[in-house]
Amino acid sequence: MTENTTHFGFKRVAAEEKAGLVRGVFDSVAEHYDIMNDLMSMGIHRIWKRIAVQLSNVRKGEQVLDLAGGTGDLTTLFEQRVGDEGNVVLADINAQMLRTGRNRLIDRGLVGNVQYTQVNAECLPFADGSFDCVCIAFGLRNVTDKDAALRSMYRVLKPGGRAIVLEFSHPIDPVTEKVYDFYSFNLLPKIGKWVAKDEDSYRYLAESIRMHPKQGELKAMMETAGFERCEYFNMTQGIVAVHRGYKL
């Protein structure tokens, strides 16, 4: 990989173009994002998210940053944990996704301890040591400079804080891998075409998962960014993994 190029799915693009291309994908799918998540995962994504929140060990009164928070599923779960004394910031680089999430949570009555901000994960606009937990769910693979994002997450954590990365990953057995590949490249784009009227965006999502670092690689990247006691937890045979690291 040269310094001025990166991957967008299986394609090579100029690094400065990737954010705009990813924005186009999520502008397109925002309206159907939640129903597509349910269809793509047969509803299992809700279990994955609950497990990630449990592993965060977030408690009442804490400050949480939900990066790439999209339509607010994780923010809703975190808000229940931090209570009135705590605070959750729902952040996303994509304005349309953030707008969809904000409207959804306001409709649910979550207005007191939830804030919204449009940010780039690579250069978070928060002071050092602002949060007890930073979570990024199904978003790190879309970031152009993942190392910069991990360093930025580390910087805004308080001492004793923890980072949670919930992301599609790599199956740990060949049978699951073959079934998953068939589903991802043959069925997923068709579901996107039928439901969201966008086959190409869901083909990109499948490709972006394959280009994402494997479990051990991402663990090493977190350690390089400064995190300690890093570990990961495979779910659904490694199709999804939760990585956790601490700022000590």
Rank of each mutant, 00 (worst) to 15 (best):
A137I: 01
R203M: 10
R244V: 12
L166Y: 05
R244W: 01
F233K: 15
S201Q: 01
T144G: 08
E85L: 11
G83K: 09
A220D: 11
S208R: 02
E228K: 15
A241C: 09
Y154G: 06
A225Q: 13
L188C: 04
D200H: 06
V143H: 06
N4D: 14
F131H: 07
L124V: 08
V143M: 04
V25P: 06
D66L: 11
N234H: 08
E16P: 00
I51T: 12
N103K: 15
E217L: 00
K11R: 12
I172W: 11
G245P: 03
V111Y: 06
Y33E: 03
N186R: 15
N37T: 03
E16R: 10
G72A: 02
W48M: 03
V165T: 04
H170Y: 09
V58W: 10
R59Q: 15
N113H: 14
T5P: 02
T224I: 14
M36H: 06
G24N: 12
E31T: 11
A14L: 10
A196Q: 03
N4T: 09
Y183E: 00
A91S: 10
M1D: 12
I136Y: 00
N142W: 02
G86E: 01
A196K: 05
A225D: 14
G83Y: 05
N4I: 04
G226L: 08
K197N: 10
I209E: 11
G101S: 10
V29I: 15
L74N: 07
Q237R: 14
R12E: 13
